[in-house]
Write a protein that binds this DNA or RNA. Structure first.
Lengths: 235, 235
DNA sequence: CGAATAGTTGATGTATCTCAAGCAGGGTGG
DNA sequence: CCACCCTGCTTGAGATACATCAACTATTCG
């Protein structure tokens, strides 16, 4: 695997990297990493905690967020299987980390990593993807309307669509996709820099326009993927 | 230098890392990196260009920005001496890179880096800082008011202040700082997710309140650093 | 000096927030 | 099993911060 891979086509928002898993598995065998099971909405660490470990989402979903003194919250990253977090150049965590769903998280002492080139390269690869995701998110937060934010958010869950070179719906029939948000309205709002009411209104409106149907609060069926994609502002 | 340094106290927005320079200088000696001088507001590369090099700001300031199809622009990073860019996991650049001031930029082919552990560690260190900066910026874009955004922006230029453990003004006399923005109002607006008019109004208001004085458009004297700091929303 | 460019200021519009009430689903206990 | 409650979500009415549109002013540069 090349250090700065020039051939990958990792999609928007995907942090997983199957190639890299080998190195973690290897470390796990040597007993140098610890896995731990977390419940839904359980804190992994808090901003300011000593930052001596690196964490990997083995299973589940984790969010990183920051709080302002008056209670305003911004979710800065949402990590899925394969995502790394706890990465910081400082002695203390810069974010809070909390599970969104029940999760399994593996942690490794940072000093263990110093010896492993493979690990370092895997971490570098993950950071590159995170950097790109954060760039896209800055555009979303700085320049997109509420509709565009929610549409972009929904498209994150549709694999192989909404990315460069998207070929549109399969010629065969329906352009649907069932997605599981695994986030409350409040978490979505804090991720998209909106209020819970605005998120709710936009979703209701998309429903009214026949672009989506709500199956169960956090399970949404996009009945017109292309329609949602065109609302993202990116295309 | 530890891979994931647990003792650094690099300040907000500072990407420079004097320790790492040695490795670049080393590569420069071997003739594997190229330096190039750029004018003010000259493009280094465009979004979609092949991403086969890594760049370092040797001197000057560089911004990375993204464009939406309708022309909306978001500046996603502002890099100063020591900052690295062109880092991406994909085959193509995800951003546009343009100088803000006349600059000297060094570039290295990505494949040259694959052999150098020192280089890789330096890059990793820089990415960690960028990740933290982008987290802070997400909070700014997602949750801060126009006043808080501009105040936070101004505080970026005041070294050793507005960071955790800030001890306030020196007991001796004035709490001043002269800063050089090196950005037009439009660039500031596109960085802060605002319009040029809003940026202008906020700056005028800060002037009216006696917190700053404008010396020359992009040279601002903060006459009350603590006052500005308390407007950032972070403290 | 005058044109071109960048920044400021004012008047008005509107997208999103705020505040407040109502609704739905899921679990609990009588 | 159903009434009740709790929590999360939705919807409405009104307020507001910021954007937009437009005119004006300051600065830069030939």
């Amino acid at each position: 695997m090349a250090y700065l891979d020039r051939g990958s086509t990792t999609g928007y928002g995907r942090h997983a990297d199957s190639e890299g898993d080998a190195s973690w598995a290897e470390l796990a065998k040597t007993g140098k990493s610890k896995s731990h099971r977390y419940q839904e909405h359980e804190a992994v660490y808090y901003e300011g905690d000593p930052a001596d470990k690196v964490y990997e989402v083995v299973e589940g979903t984790v969010m990183l967020f920051k709080l302002l003194p008056d209670g305003r919250r911004q979710v800065v990253e949402v990590l899925r299987t394969g995502g790394l977090f706890g990465l910081t150049s400082k002695a203390h965590q810069d974010c809070n980390a909390e599970t969104l769903t029940a999760s399994v998280i593996r942690s490794i002492e940072k000093r263990e990593i110093e010896g492993s080139t493979v690990m370092q390269q895997h971490i570098a690869k993950c950071m590159l993807t995170q950097l790109e995701t954060l760039h896209d998110h800055a555009v979303l937060l700085g320049r997109k309307s509420a509709f565009e934010r929610v549409a972009s958010f929904l498209m994150r869950f549709v694999p192989e669509r909404g990315i460069v070179g998207c070929i549109g719906p399969k010629p065969s029939g329906k352009d649907e996709s069932l997605i599981v948000l695994a986030m409350t309205r409040q978490e979505i709002a804090d991720y998209l820099g909106l209020t819970i009411e605005t998120v709710s209104r936009v979703i209701s409106d998309l429903k009214r326009r026949g672009l989506i149907t709500i199956e169960k609060q956090d399970r949404i069926r996009i009945t017109n993927v292309c329609g949602i994609c065109h609302l993202t502002g990116t295309h």
